[in-house]
Amino acid sequence: MLNVAPACKESIIMTSLSPQQVSTADDIVGVQYGQFRIMDEDGAAGIPDNSPPQDPSTYDDWMQSTPNFALVRSSFDSHVMGVRFELWDGPPPEPEFSAAATKVLVWTGKFYASSGRVRTMELVDPRADPHTFDLGRRETVWQLRVVLSRLVDEDWEEDEDWEEDENWEESSPATADGLEEVLLQFWAPSAEE
């Protein structure tokens, strides 16, 4: 008779040590002037007085993070982007990219959230009811991975007239699943991070 208990026990132990996804939510955000924001619900009021000055040399050309705010630049001037929020109990595995992705940008860094409740936000005319994603902890410096996936070919060009149509969100290829999508993965840093 075969004894398989040790292998099963090892598998259970290894599984319990792997980082687990705690929660997830999907949303959309309007990209305006080629960018959108990630913002803690407290906004500028929640930035600690002792925050170090921002160092522009740490900014990427498409992603910038400051306390309670981050700015993400898009490849396109104006469209509606699909957003996925994920909260993990440790560093998540490397993301699997959509087969439709023609270009992928990945940024990993720190994001301070004073209220622990974050959302995406348009630059101008923000939505009245943005989805708020609860990270579950206040006043925490989170690790954040931002994965921006372009879903159209490099030679795709915006039609200058489509934005002028009052129903441009419905009539153009620039819908939540059309041009780009973004994945926002948050996890609390470990003691050595």
Rank of each mutant, 00 (worst) to 15 (best):
N3H: 08
A7K: 11
E10I: 09
E10G: 04
I12R: 12
I13V: 15
T15D: 13
S16G: 01
Q20T: 04
S23Y: 08
T24L: 13
D26K: 05
D26A: 05
G30C: 10
D40W: 03
E41A: 09
G43Q: 01
A44W: 08
I47F: 01
P48I: 14
S51Y: 09
P52A: 10
P56V: 00
Y59S: 12
D60G: 07
D61L: 03
W62L: 04
M63N: 00
M63Q: 02
Q64D: 10
R73V: 05
D77H: 14
D77C: 08
S78M: 14
V80S: 05
G82A: 10
R84V: 10
G90L: 13
P91L: 07
P91Y: 04
P93Q: 04
P95V: 06
A99M: 08
K103G: 03
V104N: 06
L105N: 14
V106E: 06
K110F: 10
F111E: 03
F111N: 00
Y112D: 00
Y112N: 01
A113G: 10
G116C: 07
G116N: 01
V118Y: 00
L123G: 13
L123C: 10
V124Y: 11
A128L: 13
P130Q: 06
E139G: 06
Q143W: 03
V146P: 02
V147M: 08
S149H: 04
R150S: 05
R150Q: 09
L151H: 05
L151A: 07
V152M: 10
W156P: 02
W156D: 05
E158Y: 09
E160F: 15
D161N: 15
E166G: 11
S171H: 08
S171D: 12
A176G: 15
L179T: 00
E180Y: 04
L183E: 07
E192I: 00
